[in-house]
Design a protein around this nucleic acid. Structure first.
Length: 491
RNA sequence: GGUCGGGUGGCCGAGCGGUUAGGCAGAGCUCUGCAAAAGCUCCUACAGCGGUUCAAAUCCGCUCCCGACCUCCA
């Protein structure tokens, strides 16, 4: 279906390259999922919406994709410092509940928000706690390979030893010496041999509620090993795409590569893809900066930074108007612009459904449709795709106004392309409340419109305007078109 | 401090050697009883200073700002 091969920007080589799956048409894709100890925040959502777009497009052009996105529900340390700050235990103590209650609560919340954003479910959504034995196995293998050591019940990965034969900084494009310079001397690090060493298994302290038995005593897995274990289990030693936020490159993904490399003796991932950060007034939206708002606050408008609420689709459309590798800055003005743009696009989609063909096409529809594929093939460039779709919107409206024409064949192609890209690829959906299945409202509206039209025929405009203004107070908009009077209710 | 990535019209945001990106806002016109919607037209920018080139927003150098990572975060 694609008119040209897909090009993907690979973090590994820092440029775009042709996408060739290892076992076409099968594609393995792993994306680092959320840590479910708090509400998902919008930055997470952007990453998952971006990979949803990628997943959807790969499916759209015919690939058979296994999309794995983990749920991190096992406590990992605050960094690799041995401070024992199990996030789940901390939160549980604060909320006076079981750690697994925290996990349950935020997992459900996370799925609910992504459902509102109309993202597809991954093929597999494995949890870290469900794969403890795999993580212990992997840790054992790394110890056997001589690249990890136990120290007082905690197991560390020996980065400097690994670096003798491997390029540890391959993903972050940094040299070991530079990395070593960057580290700081921290307290309580006596257990570690090297400053860059990171934990594979962490000894549980009395306050840690989440704990499992292991060859090194009771403890819990380090943060990075879960992804190595689960990606290997479900996608194999080497798979096609691994994704996540850019902030994961330097530490998480770097460590993941090292672990997998030691266990599987090969580079784990062919294409590394990273999404950029979400910012608010130019500053990264983050938990620690406290400049974020939750998706539900954004939808309701119930936040001091927001003038009003924005629907999930308006927000998603806003995100799709920016390329996934660019930072995206939130502002009320930008959100309002997207809200209107989205509405215009969706109006054109409904116009397109009832459009009539006649004679020859007055514009090159085939070329327009091909451009949509080209845009997505170029590293999933959704802003360009939307620009082409808006060219289509102009064409659709012109045809509807009788100022342009379209052939039967082209109309069918345009309908198919619009439908495919807007609903299947971008994953947008109509949000207007269904007015058709409310008989009472429909009947009342039909009556009011009839009364108004009678008034209009008698040129009694004060009366017709009174009806229209009255309806406006109930957020119902009246439109007089050539085909008659229509109405719609604001959501 | 080190390593990356940026600075594009009123706002958002593509492009990354030669073409009107696109959306929103604003102005005018067409349609309309008036609106709304839609269409057409206008608004033509690339932080600054040098350099390379027939040609630079796009390449190179310097300067000034901003951000990210190096410490949990997608």
């Amino acid at each position: 279906m694609a008119t040209q091969p897909i090009e993907i920007y690979n973090t590994l080589i820092r440029k775009k390259e042709k996408f060739t799956p290892l076992n076409s048409p099968f594609v393995g894709m792993y994306v680092c999922g959320p840590t479910v100890y708090d509400d998902v925040h919008l930055g997470n959502c952007r990453t998952f919406i971006s990979f949803d777009l990628i997943y959807r497009y790969l499916l759209f052009v015919g690939y058979k994709v296994r999309y794995v996105r983990n749920i991190t529900d096992a406590g990992h340390l605050e960094g690799d410092r041995d401070e024992g700050g199990d996030k789940f235990a901390k939160k549980a103590k604060l909320e006076q509940v079981e750690p697994m209650e925290i996990v349950q609560k935020y997992t459900v919340g996370f799925r609910e928000v992504l459902r509102m954003f109309n993202t597809l479910s991954p093929s597999i959504e494995p949890t870290a706690t469900g794969h403890i034995s795999e993580q212990i196995e992997m840790t054992k293998q790394i110890i056997e390979a001589g690249l990890a050591y136990e120290s007082n019940g905690t197991v560390y990965f020996n980065v400097e030893k690994y670096s003798q034969k491997n390029n540890y900084g391959i993903l972050s494009n940094r040299k070991l010496e530079e990395l070593l310079e960057g580290t700081r001397e921290l307290e309580g690090q006596d257990e570690k041999k090297g400053r860059l060493d990171f934990a594979l298994w962490i000894k549980a302290k009395p306050e840690h509620i989440m704990r499992w038995p292991s060859p090194w005593g009771w403890g819990f897995p380090g943060w990075h090993i879960e992804c190595s274990a689960m990606s290997t289990k479900y996608l194999g030693a080497t798979f096609d795409i691994h994704g996540g936020g850019m902030d994961l490159i330097a530490t998480h993904h770097t460590n993941e590569i090292a672990q997998s490399q030691v266990c599987n003796h090969c580079e784990p991932v062919k294409y590394w893809m990273h999404t950029n950060m979400l910012t608010v007034n130019g500053i990264r939206m983050s938990k620690s900066a406290g400049n974020g708002f939750l998706p539900l606050e954004l939808f309701s408008g119930n936040h001091k930074l927001l003038d009003k609420g924005y629907s999930p689709m308006a927000v998603k459309f806003f995100m799709l108007q920016t390329h996934y590798r660019s930072t995206l800055d939130f502002s009320n003005e930008a959100l309002q612009a997207s809200e209107k743009g989205f509405e215009r696009l969706m109006n054109a989609v409904s116009t397109l459904e009832k459009l009539k063909s006649s004679g020859k096409s007055s514009s090159d529809i085939k070329s327009l449709c091909a451009k949509c594929y080209d845009a997505m093939n170029d590293d999933f460039n959704s802003p360009i795709l939307l620009a082409h779709l808006f060219d289509g919107v102009k064409t659709i409206n012109s045809i509807n106004d009788g100022k342009a024409t379209i052939s039967k064949e082209d109309l069918s192609l345009l309908q198919k392309t619009f439908h495919g890209f807007i609903f299947d690829v971008l994953g947008l959906k109509e949000e207007k409340p269904a007015t058709n299945n409310d008989d009472l409202l429909n009947n009342l509206m039909a009556m009011i419109i009839e009364m108004r039209n009678e008034a209009k025929e008698k040129k009694d405009f004060p009366a017709s305007d009174k009806l229209r203004n009255g309806l406006a107070k109930s957020k119902i908009t009246i439109k007089d078109t050539k085909e008659g009077t229509t109405w719609e209710k604001e959501k």
